[in-house]
Design a protein around this nucleic acid. Structure first.
Lengths: 250, 250
DNA sequence: CGCGCTGTTGAAACTTGTCAAAGTTTGTGG
DNA sequence: CCACAAACTTTGACAAGTTTCAACAGCGCG
């Protein structure tokens, strides 16, 4: 029953303010501010003035806790997991810079999953009531927020597709291609990166056992598609990975 | 390349108006109007004045088509399917009275799946731009719409859970219990109903082959949990079904 | 009334899971 | 800073669950 919330302080942005405001954030083209004008950005800055450090292994929120804010990943890496009543749990998503966490909680006013940091991370707190308020006044913000939620639904459909009709190799290929694209969009190398999650977490997300994940990694390596050493991955042949997952190579 | 849209007319609600308005719709407690006051309902009625009949086997929209409206199921039954580039497709959801279709399209302005009627059906057309407009003025509507989207996300997480960590029996049990609850919420018998979908569609949704679905149905019947004859299902032992899917019996 | 779609069932094949053991890395405390 | 423990990863052999292929039955639409 660890209470991780107590471990890391919520800090207002006092002097740091300029550096941490949405208007100067490096992730603003990926995050909630997309498409806002200068003046609109200022109003959003006014709303999102709290951030929170989350130490590796601790959570932003847990299933069952009251929902009252969304969280934008400012730095770091997260997973969300849902727990079945019989103790089984499953990773439902991985989240990186600029992505929004917590939308699962809107429907019932309670979070339905845990959001756990896979490395020391930082999130911006977006009080949901005020976001709704502001989006009643700002057409652009409202529409963009709807887009973000919609994309979350589409993303989930992609995962359902993967879980429902792909074989192990295809699942891992799809997973790697997806990660690769997201790193690219953030200015990192799409072909070489460190996995922040364990084989077990990958497996849980992909509906596979960790041994299967490990075996498929080895097979990919044997076939010259990539090189893996523990968490370090270098993708050598992206077109072939794409072909594997049933997509056209380009 | 069938163009099913042409086959069924879009009809304004002229004289029929009173009977089809949200304010008098039997599904209003399950649908978009939840929580609206009388005056607010009137304004929503003003927005949702078109409905459309969808013949069995035809679609409301298809992947790739321009998105500009959501659809509320007024009567009937739908599935949504996504298509992989290599031709494989998968059912991502089943939708019945009062449920909203089309939210996948908001993010990209294009639909990402097909919405196909499994029986002759009718939907109400909700022009999305006007819904956003109205929800900027009506707090309740805005919040409820966000809840609906959020619940779609949570529902998808449930399916991911099912696909990622349940065995065939557990998946079918979860599917049946879910259907049962939704029928109950609509005033139908939770223990006896007709499946509108084929074994193949159930299998696609559950990540199983149709033969497996059929076998599991037979096994459930042999064990006295239910009786099936083709599409007619009578659930005899719901607690045992719930237990199977890893939930407490009540 | 028959043809086609849908559903059922069996046997064999295949993919993935399970169990086990050993190697590797990471983190912690002395 | 080293040593040891814990966590993570890899690999093998075998088991189990699901799919595949095939044959046949039943229902329903035209």
């Amino acid at each position: 029953m660890a209470s991780p919330s107590a471990a890391h302080a919520v800090q207002p942005l006092s002097l740091d303010r300029l550096k941490t405001a949405c208007s100067t954030c490096g992730l603003r083209e990926l995050c909630l501010p997309v498409g806002l004008s200068g003046e609109e950005l200022d109003r959003l800055d006014n709303l999102i003035y709290l951030r929170k450090s989350i130490k590796k292994g601790t959570s932003i929120y847990r299933a069952g806790e009251r929902f009252d804010a969304l969280y934008a990943v400012r730095a770091g890496f997260f997973k969300t997991t849902v727990l079945l009543e019989d103790g089984r749990d499953q990773v439902t998503g991985f989240y990186m810079g600029g992505e929004l966490l917590g939308m699962d909680g809107i429907g019932t006013e309670k979070h339905t999953c845990d959001a756990v940091a896979l490395e020391d991370s930082e999130v911006c707190i977006i009080p949901f009531g005020r976001l709704e308020e502001l989006s009643r006044e700002m057409h652009n913000l409202q529409h963009h927020f709807h887009k973000v939620m919609s994309r979350e639904i589409v993303r989930d459909h992609g995962v359902m597709m993967l879980l429902g009709s792909m074989r192990a190799e295809e699942r891992l290929a799809a997973f790697l291609v997806n990660l690769s694209q997201r790193f690219l969009a953030r200015g990192y190398s799409p072909s070489e990166f460190y996995l922040r999650m364990t084989r077990e977490e990958i497996g849980s997300y992909l509906g596979l056992k960790l041994e299967t994940v490990s075996r498929v990694f080895s097979r990919f390596q044997d076939e010259g598609m990539l090189s893996v050493q523990q968490k370090h991955v270098r993708i050598i042949d992206i077109p072939r990975l794409r072909a594997l997952m049933g997509q056209r190579p380009c």
